[in-house]
């Protein structure tokens, strides 16, 4: 007889499930989502170090009553490129997709070059193009500096 399936996180009625987050990166994902901005009735569930057939170990984040903006999805794509995002409506998965890095990444991370014009108080958002996809390397479209350490530069 198969072992009973153990439910570690309860299902949500409406909201977003971010699955297949790299092991240990869920807290960064929470920071991107901006938990402080959520509806006070929303529950956020985080599962760390969950067994995964595909990945060995993974993290999962579930957020009630929220759908992610494209900008937040881009930020998640940077730090957790393996993540999948499911939109839940009335307990059912209405949409499921992987995170895709777009050609241009706007307003998600600061340029690591302190002397870059985007770090000098100008009315401009940071903007990067993708110099390399595996592993991801971004290039600032202004100063052309390359960046592969996104965690410490997220806005």
């Amino acid at each position: 007889m198969a072992a009973p399936r153990e439910l570690k996180i309860t299902p949500i009625k409406n909201g977003t499930v971010i699955d297949h987050i790299g092991n240990g990166l869920s807290l960064e994902v929470l920071r991107i989502i901006g938990v402080g901005d959520l509806d006070k009735d929303s529950t956020v569930s985080v599962a760390l170090h969950v067994r995964s057939q595909k990945m060995g170990w993974k993290d999962i984040v579930k957020v009630e009553n929220m759908e992610l903006s494209p900008r937040k999805v881009n930020a998640i794509a940077l730090i957790a490129p393996t993540a999948t995002i499911s939109i839940i409506r009335d307990y059912k998965v209405r949409e499921k997709r992987t995170v895709d890095l777009p050609e241009r990444i706007v307003g998600v991370a600061r340029c690591p070059n302190p002397n870059c014009i985007t770090n000098r108080g100008e009315p401009v958002e940071s903007e990067f193009d993708v110099a390399r996809r595996r592993p991801v390397v971004l290039r600032c479209i202004y100063c052309e500096r390359q960046m592969d350490d996104f965690l410490s530069h997220l806005i």
Binding site: C111, I117, I141, Y142, C143
Partner: peptide, 27 residues
Amino acid sequence: HPNEGAARLAAEMSDKPVINAGDGAGQ
């Protein structure tokens, strides 16, 4: 300009052509 990327920003802001004469350690 002393900051890298300044000329690219200037080009976005200007409706006239911009020629970069050196921006920081950039181009």
